[in-house]
Design a binder for these strands. Structure first.
Length: 294
DNA sequence: CGTCAGGTCTCTA
DNA sequence: TAGAGACCTGAC
């Protein structure tokens, strides 16, 4: 294990940890079900577990958990085996990324559930982050499973494909999903009918995985790359949303470069680390409003 | 009241 | 193969 930890009460304390900044991890655009608390910590639901993550000095404290879950779930979920120093060193050779990395120090790419990420990023298309979060929370409250109450709030697991499969389109649209409702429903149908095994895609190449994901209605190149990067451990995927487009054009390319050319440029430049570069650039661009017209 | 948001789909040339 | 429009919805 790359990180030492101690167990105390219902907490796991990772001492003197580097490359783990909760704000940057949970607000770099990869997840929607982690929320900031008044004390600056973050609480989220993963599978059927509720976890709170807080940084205190140089320690990261995971609350409402235990050693068994840390070893079987959280160590993998937070990708704690990753050598972030090596990635940062390689990417820092580029002067722009060097700045983005300093700015987003401690970003980690989570290893999230494939199905949940598929639905989450289908919901993200032409949408706003607060609305995406609301839609996913409503789906969970209505069709997920009640887990527990934690610090006065109720938490629900994300619904499974079989939970959504039998619903009507109207029921899904009542969860604030809008025109994406039909895509969510058909994704549930495709998974339940075993037309596509979403959990097998991580075992094939990034390129083949992308092709497979594009078979889902509502999944285009950007959403497919998000799924590959955020749930299938494919760090060479490079999702291009409006922010990444802006930041790439601002620093590296001409204005109005088409998406395919940006994609090619990024893959050639960042290669197997493109996804990590994307996360740093995205966070940098969005927090500073780089390239935003106005 | 228009505008627009972490894109994708559909239709046209 | 590329480019323009439409698209749920609700905050501003």
């Amino acid at each position: 294990m790359r990180y030492d930890f101690i167990e105390k009460d219902d907490k796991i304390i990772m001492k003197d940890i580097s490359n783990f900044e909760p704000k940057h991890v949970f607000e770099c655009g990869q997840c929607f079900r982690w929320n900031r608390e008044n004390d600056g910590s973050y609480t989220g639901v993963v599978y059927d577990k509720i976890l709170n993550v807080k940084k205190v000095g140089n320690d990261v404290i995971l609350s409402n958990t235990n050693k068994e879950d840390f070893e079987s779930i959280w160590y993998n979920y937070f990708d704690l085996d990753r050598d972030c120093d090596e990635i940062k060193a390689k990417l820092s050779k580029d002067s722009i990324l060097k700045k983005a990395i300093e700015f987003g120090e401690g970003i980690r790419i989570l290893r999230q559930d494939e199905w949940e990420i598929l639905i989450s990023f289908i919901t993200s298309a032409n949408n706003r982050i607060p609305m995406i979060k609301r839609a996913l929370e409503t789906l969970s409250e209505k069709y997920g499973r009640f887990i527990d109450e934690y610090n006065g709030k109720k938490y629900y697991s994300f619904p499974k494909a079989k939970d959504l499969n039998s619903l009507s389109l109207d029921e899904i649209k009542k969860c604030h999903t809008g025109f994406r409702g039909k895509y969510i429903l058909s994704a549930a149908n495709i998974i339940e009918n075993k037309e596509i095994d979403i959990y097998a895609i991580k075992n094939i190449s990034t390129e083949d995985g992308r092709k497979e994901l594009l078979l889902f209605p509502g999944v285009g190149p950007k959403v497919a790359d998000c799924i590959l990067l955020f749930s299938m451990n494919k760090p060479d995927a490079f999702p291009i949303d409006v922010w990444v487009k802006r930041v790439m054009e601002y620093f590296y390319l001409d204005e109005d470069t088409n998406l395919k050319d940006i994609q090619k440029y990024a893959q050639d430049k960042f290669r197997e680390l493109a996804g990590f570069a994307q996360q740093y650039l995205f966070y940098y661009a969005r927090e500073l409003g780089i390239g935003k017209k106005k």
